[in-house]
Simulated scan of single mutants.
Amino acid sequence: MGRGRAKAKQTKVARQLKYTNHHIDYDRLREELGADSRGAEEISPPSASEQESERAQ
């Protein structure tokens, strides 16, 4: 017994997380994390010659 309050609180928190509008400012987050100014889509994967040079080291 005694689980009723804990379960009710967990349900309340879960509902708040599910139905609350979460606005995320991705530009501000990127600045705080110190990410590069280029977007993730603009970064190209390493070419085959770059990969081979990395393996040789």
Rank of each mutant, 00 (worst) to 15 (best):
A14D: 10
T20D: 05
E52W: 06
R28W: 03
Y26A: 11
K7P: 00
E52F: 00
S37I: 05
D27V: 09
H23C: 03
A6L: 12
M1R: 02
E32P: 00
S44W: 00
S49M: 04
L17G: 06
A6Q: 07
P46V: 01
S37H: 07
G2N: 08
E31M: 12
H22I: 07
R55Y: 07
I24M: 08
R30I: 01
T11Q: 15
K9R: 15
A48N: 07
E32H: 08
E52V: 02
L33T: 10
E31T: 11
A48Q: 13
Q57R: 15
P45N: 07
K12S: 15
R55F: 08
T20I: 01
R28P: 00
E41L: 08
G4R: 05
M1A: 13
Q16C: 06
E54L: 15
A8V: 02
E32Q: 14
M1T: 08
Y19S: 11
R15D: 05
A8M: 05
K9W: 09
H22D: 02
H22E: 03
G39W: 01
S47Y: 02
K7R: 14
R15N: 13
M1V: 09
I24W: 08
E31D: 14
E31L: 13
V13G: 01
I43Y: 02
G34Q: 00
E54T: 10
G39R: 01
A48I: 06
A48R: 14
A35C: 14
G2C: 05
A56M: 09
H23R: 09
A56V: 03
A6T: 10
A48L: 13
G39P: 01
L17W: 10
E52Q: 14
K12P: 00
L29T: 12
T20S: 13
G2L: 09
M1F: 05
K12Q: 15
G34K: 01
Q10A: 15
E31A: 14
E52C: 01
L17Q: 12
